[in-house]
Every structure is written in structure tokens, then in C-alpha cells.
Amino acid sequence: MEEIKLIVDGKRLDGRGFEELRPIKIEAGVLKRADGSCYLEMGKNKVVAAVYGPREVHPKHLEEPDRAIVRYRYSMAPFSVEERKRPGPDRRSIEISKVSREALEPVIMKELFPRSAIDIFVEVLQADAGSRTACLNAASVALVDAGIPMKGIVTSVAVAKVDGVLVLDPMKEEDNYGEADIPFAFLIRNGKIESITLLQMDGRVTAEELRKALELAKKGAMEIYKLQREAIMKKYVKEEEVME
């Protein structure tokens, strides 16, 4: 196969710079029946998140006497990718559900709702690399929309290594033909990044590159955090009320 050039004249294939995010659109409260919901676009990714609960746990044996359980389901629509994706959970989506749940669990104040469940569902309508990060961003906006007590807001972004350079928020071509893909999720509190709640890596980078990737991801996450805030504010705050 012919070598694909992912970086031409210091620009990426879609014309972005190395440290530039794809355009993001976030809307909170799109589903009437859900307790909290969010629609999010991150480049060509289109995802919807719905949050239900705290509510009764079924099946009952999953109940925890001292805290709520958190369930996260990541699922891709059959039409979300070019080749039809067989619907239902598969190895990949089960793994993503697990790591994403673990990214949100330390942030949600589970101990306030013993013997109940908080269910988070995210559906990928259109995928274009980094769908797990898009889903996490949508899920955390939906959680805030649902009024679930949390220590902060989770924001997620990926960094990739393509043609030997680190780039923020890779799109499909960079993910497919790049050398590495590193999704991050951060807990952001009071406008500061407090901790990393998700870190995965596909491919390989040097230790130094990983450190650089982290710095890059932090920058990107802060931008996304602002957009997440705006989306929630847009739903709840009327014009006259201004943030302090």
C-alpha cells in the first residue's frame, strides 16, 4: 500500500494545526423522558447521552447497601460507520463502557444514594475516531443536566502520534494510519485539572512523548470544558443572570 502522508506543509489533512480541536457543538437536555441528556458533535462524531436515576436497581442483587451503582453503556449505531456495524455489545464496546464508567465513578458522589442505580447510556450515531472521548464529554454534561452530585466535570480528549508528531483530537485518517492514539479524561474542578480519570494507549510513544501528549491533552480539555459549561448554562441560565 502506498504510504499516506498525514501531515502536509505543517498542516493536517483537514487543515487543522497540530494543537487544534475539531469544531464542537454541545446541547444539553435534548431528550424529554430522560432525567438528563446531551447531544454532542466533535468533528464528524455525533453522539447522544442519556442519564436516568438515581433509580431502583434491577436486577436487585446488583444493589449496594452503602452507595449507588453506576452503569455506563456505550453503543454504536449500525449506521455509525461505513461498513454496517453488527448491533449490540461487542468486545470493543464492552471495554469502552468499562473504562468510561471507571472514568466517571470517582467523580459521582455515589454514597448519597444507597441502594440505587445511576444509568448512563451513550449512543454513537456517527463515528469518526475518538468516539469514546466524545461520549464521555456528552455523558458528563448529561450527568450535570440530571442534577447528579459530582465533585467536578469530566472532560475527555485524545492525542495521536502521526508522521512522528503529536496531534490533538485525531480524526479517522489519523487514527487509522497514525502511530499511536492516546485518549485521556480529566476531572476538572473549579477550572483546574485535578486528576486523570482515563488513560489508554494504542500504539507506542516514548516516555517523553507521553508527557508532551498529556500537556497537549490538558490544553484541549480546558477548551472543551468551557464549551461543556456553556451548554449547561445555555439550558438553565437566563440572559440577565451573569456568572460571578
Binding site: V144, K151, G152, I188, R229, M233, E241
Partner: peptide, 9 residues
């Protein structure tokens, strides 16, 4: 004042 989770009060 409207705040979001994690905002210092």
C-alpha cells in the same frame, strides 16, 4: 450566582 459541579464557592 449559578454554579456547576466543582465550582469553588
Amino acid at each position: 450566582m449559578f454554579v456547576l459541579p466543582g465550582d469553588r464557592i
